[in-house]
């Protein structure tokens, strides 16, 4: 149990850093796919579909096994972070894109009629409304990302699942306890996150009515 909990620290670190990277990339990708320029749209569309289409674990292995052959050596923690960030960032970019598109055309038009620049319209009118729509989906993605961190144990990152697997090799008779506790700790991390997201959602929906 103690060893598991010490493994929880890298799990939480990976989750938070991965989420930060994914959040950033979500907006980059989302805006890219809505760009006026066909080239930007095409390239970001391709990148997003690429990361969405090729399974997180495959990406993780690719970064872990293939990059060194190209002369790029990354610390395994970095590999995990990049894979998580890009994979969930790709999903997040769809959230951003569809949320922006869900703001009615009339809001853009009202912004034009008040002579706002396109940047001002995005910043003050569209994004604040779109953001509300994004929160629940981002919340779900955050949980998915946390669950995804278990996979990085396969590329030798000593997070919680990795610790559990190591412990089992030594104390096979405690298998039930080890994995039982492991699941409980994951739940203990993810459930508060779910709660936090629901609370944020409620908070941001004030003023709608």
């Amino acid at each position: 149990m103690k060893n598991l909990l010490s493994g929880a620290v890298p799990t939480i670190q990976l989750t938070l850093l991965g989420a930060a990277l994914a959040f950033l990339l979500s907006f980059l990708g989302g805006f890219g796919r809505l760009s006026r320029f066909t080239a930007v749209r095409g390239v970001s569309g391709f990148i997003v579909e690429f990361f969405r289409g090729t399974s997180l674990l495959v990406q993780l292995f690719w970064l872990f096994y293939v990059l060194p052959f190209m002369g790029i050596r990354l610390e395994s923690g970095m590999v995990g972070l990049l894979a998580l960030g890009f994979n969930y960032g790709a999903y997040g970019s769809e959230v951003v894109r569809s949320a922006i598109l869900s703001v009615p055309q009339g809001q853009h038009e009202a912004g034009i009629s008040l002579n706002m620049t396109s940047l001002q319209r995005m910043r003050y009118i569209i994004l604040p409304q779109a953001f509300r729509t994004m929160i629940p989906s981002f919340g779900n993605l955050l949980i998915e990302l946390l669950k995804g961190t278990a996979l990085v144990s396969l590329v030798t990152i000593p997070e919680m699942t990795f610790e559990a697997l190591a412990m089992r090799t030594n104390d096979a008779q405690y298998t039930l306890e080890i994995f039982g506790w492991l699941l409980v700790i994951y739940f203990a991390i993810s459930y508060p996150l779910t709660m936090l997201m629901r609370w944020t959602e409620r908070r941001f929906s004030l003023g709608r009515l």
Partner: peptide, 20 residues
């Protein structure tokens, strides 16, 4: 509970614990 915890860990749980 199931949807909040990693399927990867759930697999290990089934794989290692069921035989017990």
């Amino acid at each position: 509970f199931i949807r909040s915890t990693p399927p990867f860990v759930q697999l290990f749980f089934l794989f290692f614990v069921m035989p017990q």
